[in-house]
């Protein structure tokens, strides 16, 4: 049981045992959130910078809550109100923040590989909170924690991941994580939204009925309208007809199927409202687990000594 890395940059380089270490730690930490005083002194005196170059509600709030519950000092820089607007480069921003001696930088960036770049140039521990179309490791971890809680184990589960595979870092991190832990993953998207080479990781279908058939869990991906310069499908309405998760389609899955969505949802596009709010939905459990998983990452990266890290 150990997490030997200094950073959390992605799921791809992790061993199954390291993933399980994070999940087990998160499981142990979740209880802190139910206490009358939701604060433990574990990371007193540690400073964490949240550097978000892209909009975020859940991930950012979740990291901030996790940091505060563990008593770390936090500093949130959002690029819309910072010197990034004046043209400062990522490296200069990071170096200047580093001069204030933080212990960790949590970064979200529109470019794939930005956290890896920082990891090469900074002293702090770097946590990837989503980089471009590449990875979103804490999201995959919280999805896995939710699956494990509800289903007992991940090995052997049939998981369908449906939607905009092309632009989804959530999909990529989840495919890595789930296959490492022994789940069987099926992917489903319109042909225009399937990135090249992904069929080597998991089978791809273009029919949603086929993807949900007998599934233990269905992960819906958001249609990322902000990343679409257009032309991937005729209209949102038609997308919903062909690829939206409707009540009727959910019925083809197992009776105890779990419906997941990383948020924010486009109701009536990739998911119908009655499904998002239905009895199979664990979307809000995912959010709670997100805090626990991020606490685990903070604890594992900042809890040990410098020498061990």
């Amino acid at each position: 049981m150990s997490y030997p890395h200094r950073h959390l940059l992605g799921i791809e380089p992790l061993e199954p045992e390291q993933i399980n270490t994070i999940l087990d730690t998160a499981e142990g930490l979740r209880e802190v959130l139910d206490r009358p005083i939701k604060k433990v002194p574990t990371l007193r005196g540690k400073t964490v910078v949240n550097l978000f170059y892209e909009a975020s509600t859940r991930t950012r709030a979740s990291f901030e809550v996790a940091e505060k519950v563990l008593s770390a000092d936090t500093l949130s820089v959002s690029t819309s109100t910072s010197s990034v607007q004046k043209g400062e480069t990522l490296l200069d921003t990071a170096r200047n923040l580093e001069a204030m001696n933080p212990d960790m930088i949590v970064i979200r960036h529109a470019s794939s590989g930005a956290p890896h770049f920082l990891a090469r140039h900074c002293r702090s521990a770097i946590v990837n909170a989503g980089d471009g179309f590449h990875e979103h490791p804490t999201q995959a971890l919280l999805d896995a924690l939710t699956l494990r809680q509800k289903k007992g184990q991940i090995e052997g589960l049939e998981v369908a991941i449906i939607g905009d595979l092309m632009h989804s870092r959530v999909a990529r991190s989840n495919v890595w994580l789930l296959t490492k832990l022994g789940a069987r993953v099926r992917l489903c998207a319109p042909p225009t939204l399937v990135p090249r080479g992904i069929e080597q990781l998991a089978p791809v279908t273009h029919r949603i009925e086929e993807a949900v058939d007998g599934a233990d869990a269905i992960m819906m991906l958001r249609i990322q309208t902000e990343r679409m310069s257009g032309g991937y499908f005729p209209s949102l309405r038609e997308y919903h007809q062909r690829f939206g998760l409707t009540l009727e389609r959910v019925k083809r899955a197992r009776k105890d199927v779990l419906i997941m969505h990383p948020g924010p949802m486009n109701r009536g596009v990739e998911i119908a409202s009655e499904v998002a709010d239905g009895p199979w939905s664990v979307i809000l459990d995912q959010v709670t687990n997100g805090v626990a998983v991020r606490m685990a990452v903070l604890y594992l990266l900042l809890g040990g000594s410098e020498a061990a890290a």
Partner: peptide, 23 residues
């Protein structure tokens, strides 16, 4: 009680102890 989160040596020990959770 799992006192791990309250330890005074967390930042100096080599490996982080396993968290079991308090009940």
């Amino acid at each position: 009680l799992d006192i791990t989160l309250y330890r005074d040596d967390l930042t100096t020990i080599a490996a982080q102890p396993v968290i079991q959770g308090t009940d």
